[in-house]
Design a protein around this nucleic acid. Sequence first.
DNA 1: CGCATTTCCTGGAGGC
DNA 2: TGCCTCCAGGAAATGC
Length: 270
Amino acid sequence: MPELPEVQTVVNTLQPLVGRRLGAVRVLRPDVLHGEVEDPAGFLCRRTVRAITRRAKRIVFDLGSGRQMIVHLGMTGHLQIEPSRAALRTHTHLVVAAGRGSELRFCDPRRFGAVWLLAAGTPRRGRGLGPLGPEPLEVSLAEFRGLLARSRQIKALLLDQRVLAGLGNIYADESLYRAGIHPLARSSDLDDVQVRQLYHSIRRTLRAAIRAGGSSIRDYRDGNGERGWFQQRLQVYGRTGEPCRRCRTLITRMQAAGRSSHLCPNCQAL
DNA sequence: CGCATTTCCTGGAGGC
DNA sequence: TGCCTCCAGGAAATGC
């Protein structure tokens, strides 16, 4: 479940690849590739990595001449730099030689992730490449207020990547808890104070999680295979039945937007 | 329009 | 120990 902080951490830890020239390509599972797929090896081989950046939950490799490789980790995706001599893990789908005896490897057991190879002018369409709202750490308070103007369940709205791009189930729950807002609250019913609290809760939660290297709930790892440690500081996610750290009321779990939602029923009254 | 449901997929957990 | 069922969820499609 890599969300914005986990993806940012992967991007940070992959920075040593910037300036390197890509080499031999092995496609072990062609169906994870999308876009310019006729000749993936020809697309990637001998390209220099100009930059590695993040947009929402997508990792963007700038390969020059308008070429991009975009990676979405989905739920269980890993993108790691590993020594070429290291054994391939099962469910490794793509391997690219990345210089100095290393390889960039994409491994994704559940295959909710994907890799797009996009030449200049290739249309950005299809599953996983849909339109994106603003970045939660870049949007202004005034813009954020505007996003909430339509009446929707606040949790569903926060998870909608077309509205705000980068939050997933963990950080949506954590942000709502910190703001004291129930997941089913109507976005348009929130008063000015609540909107401001939610805005700052999202920013603080994401920033703290990035500093902690993300949350390793199940199998998340960064670009070097290291775990994050923000999971130790989660307030509600995965804490069903445990006492709220603020008021000791037991954390409960409910369905919202088709996702399990964790909340303190006392701190987040509807 | 919003929202619940279903789909994709595999590993891990729990029941018996 | 082994087999079965359920559940986790990002994003999109479907139905109401």
